[in-house]
Design a protein around this nucleic acid. Sequence first.
DNA 1: CGGGAGGTTGATCACCATCAACAACCGTGG
DNA 2: CCACGGTTGTTGATGGTGATCAACCTCCCG
Lengths: 241, 241
Amino acid sequence: MAHVDAGFEARSTVSDQPRAGASGEAGWESVRQSQSTRRQTYRAHDVIYFEGDDARHLYEIVTGGAMLYKLLPDGRRQVVEVLGPGDLFGFDMDAQHDCSAETLVATTLMVFNRSEIERSSAAQSHLTRCALQQVCAMHEHAVLLGRKSAYERVATFLMRFVPERGTVNCKGPDDEDNDTGSLRLNMTRQEMADYLGLTIETVSRVISDMKRKGVIRLEKHDQITINRICSLCQLTGTHAD
Amino acid sequence: MAHVDAGFEARSTVSDQPRAGASGEAGWESVRQSQSTRRQTYRAHDVIYFEGDDARHLYEIVTGGAMLYKLLPDGRRQVVEVLGPGDLFGFDMDAQHDCSAETLVATTLMVFNRSEIERSSAAQSHLTRCALQQVCAMHEHAVLLGRKSAYERVATFLMRFVPERGTVNCKGPDDEDNDTGSLRLNMTRQEMADYLGLTIETVSRVISDMKRKGVIRLEKHDQITINRICSLCQLTGTHAD
DNA sequence: CGGGAGGTTGATCACCATCAACAACCGTGG
DNA sequence: CCACGGTTGTTGATGGTGATCAACCTCCCG
């Protein structure tokens, strides 16, 4: 099923390069070059806007990564989206943002005026595509939050950063004996926990356990090598044995 | 009896009447009247389509209610959206549906051809609005699934059916001493549980407990009277004490 | 070398899932 | 009308998963 694939692409990894094809439309490109559009850079863990702020702009990630989150009054936090290069955010229905937005790492954004977007039909349709993609991604994430075990959540999260794998039309390993992959998270344990609906301790424990069992290897805290991608994939809960 | 449930905005309840203003745009109306558009009726718990089916149509609920859900291979189910009159669904990014769709009660739908939608820019913009609304709704639901207790989940779910209340700009009770509301769920306990990321037993227990504590009263299993809406609202976790 | 933030590990507990039995409800047919 | 079987919902007993509390470690960076 191609859609799951697209869902994964939509929530791309936090990397340095924009994904190919993510913003390839000509009309969108012209909005990008509009003079009211500007470029802005942030450092890691900077707030871009708060929930409740007036939603005047639309943002596109050029390089780096960001997250959207909501807070409950007692301080509980839920990260609702993790975004990478090419992803759009800040397009809320209403006049106010429904989430806070924060960078994960040093990030540069394109900042569009809302009015600009509303004038261009090409921009509109690009926005629609992104929104629909996000709906799919959120559906997938709802399954994770509502029905998966801690182990499955972490495995699913890690698989997300492996291109071409873990989806329904997974190719399987290119090389049977060397089915490895390396990835950098660019998120703290707290951010992961808040995204996965877990605590920091549980995330840490699961990762340690995966390491102990030889599924992954930790180069640094946020630099992980997956020893056998297929094994990790089995742990996600989304695929039949 | 006229249930209270006709007025909630983004995530409307399952009721008999379409929400006012939900589809009031002229352009959308014209697509509705296109000859390729047809009307279709379903009985309760009928499948509209399965995850993975070709996505040829777009659906709008006229009367009744439906849900979208995803299944894991071992049978775990997560209901990702609950939809009422005026709501659109079936608009996935890709060629295949990313969720299954099923009616909750007897339902009539408008069925649009995808190609029809893609031709009309008015339809496009209506679709975008709906998609953005759904993204917001999903964000809220992610908080529920990731961070709320069983009690808070059920309370949040019930509050959703009370118009003009439980939102940020809640008016407070009209009448201090008679802050009640009546609602019909139109969902089985299993459907609620799968939506809230709980088990059927937990949902049942929480509801029994609310009854015991005098927060609600059960007329029938899916017909509930809220004795003090404000009390219920306190239990949702979304509002400071 | 020292301090601090972020991460790990251990012990314990609580919430909710699971398993199991039972009750209420509903339509059907005698 | 009641008996019935099946479906749906409730309640109880028990256990497991993951939260909580607390101590410690490890990596940076001055």
